[in-house]
């Protein structure tokens, strides 16, 4: 059986998605003695996020590691994860996504879209960067032109902090930063380094507003066509891929200060007090926006999962 596996990072071993995909390939082909032939299509070769989500439903792609935006466009509740400053740390984020909350979301997504979500790995903890001044508090954001992804939830986030939000598509971002069309942007360390965004951004504030994700997705029709042994193999191998992907991205996020200052950026630490100010300014407004889009069910569930982890 042919398993076409699509992702969007470049085809080298330093890309977490690609390293994970290669591990998945050798794992699955080994465990099934080649009855499943994995073919990896890196670097958006088979299309961008939205097209790959459609491809999983059309059956033209069997498996993919997709980022949050395109998932939310097909399965709206996923956008609950864009509520900022919700997770205290990496361990909490993983625990919630691997626990009851993540399972319930995967089940709901399968029922509504026909796409199976095995789990998520990190797309990095998002931080603000800019080329104008060190930003340590919301008031420092005043008047900055921040690039956001082209979805309204990100506009709400940035505007709630007092900056002006400029939606720019990802391919135009490096050029827009270089030419100063925008002053700043927000991304995880992996993206800042891989797309060389640091070249034209002097300051990075480690505010960690959103933990963003890559979900490991499979066409359910394809999954149900597998033998039991093959299903087990695929499920186990996704775990290995996820672990590699998480390890690589999380290591970069954990060493953000060292990595980004080595690239010449000035790292602005954000103290817990300052982070609380960010949270107070942004979280209620974004939560309100998300509730107006998808209802209160999933935001409430997420709050409950976070609460349960804290009380553990």
């Amino acid at each position: 059986k042919d398993l076409k596996y699509a992702h969007f990072q470049s085809a080298d071993l330093s890309s977490p998605k690609h390293a994970a995909a290669l591990a998945f390939e050798s794992c699955v082909e080994g465990k099934t003695s080649g009855s499943i032939d994995v073919q990896i299509f890196p670097a958006s070769q088979l299309g961008g996020g939205s097209e790959i989500m459609e491809g999983l439903q059309l059956g033209t792609v069997q498996m993919a590691a997709v980022h949050d935006g395109p998932i939310s466009a097909v399965y709206k509740p996923f956008s609950v994860l864009a509520i900022p400053y919700i997770f205290d740390d990496q361990a909490m984020a993983w625990s919630v996504m691997d626990g009851e909350f993540g399972d319930a979301m995967a089940e709901d997504m399968l029922a509504k879209t026909g796409i199976r979500m095995f789990g998520v790995a990190d797309n990095g903890v998002r931080n603000f960067t800019n080329n104008v001044r060190p930003v340590a508090e919301p008031k420092d954001m005043e008047g900055l032109k921040m690039r956001v992804m082209t979805a309204p939830v990100w506009v709400t986030l940035v505007e709630s902090l007092g900056a002006s939000a400029t939606p720019v598509p990802w391919p135009e971002l490096p050029g827009a930063l270089q030419q100063g069309v925008v002053d700043g942007q927000e991304n995880g360390v992996t993206n800042i380094v891989n797309a060389s965004l640091y070249q034209h951004q002097k300051y990075v504030s480690l505010d960690g507003h959103v933990f963003s994700w890559h979900a490991y997705l499979m066409s359910e029709d394809f999954f149900q066509g597998l033998s039991d042994a093959e299903k087990t193999a695929v499920t186990q191998c996704v775990e290995i891929a996820k672990t590699i992907h998480r390890g690589m991205t999380a290591a970069q996020d954990a060493n953000a200060t060292a990595i980004l200052s080595e690239k010449g950026m000035e790292v602005v630490p954000v103290s817990p007090d300052q982070k609380a100010k960010f949270r107070a300014a942004a979280q209620p407004k974004v939560r309100e926006f998300v509730v107006s889009e998808i209802g209160a069910e999933w935001p409430d569930r997420l709050d409950a999962a976070v609460e349960a982890y804290r009380n553990q």
Partner: peptide
């Protein structure tokens, strides 16, 4: 028809 129940990004 296929795209009807999906949303555009912006």
């Amino acid at each position: 028809e296929f795209g009807w129940n999906k949303e555009t990004m912006s």
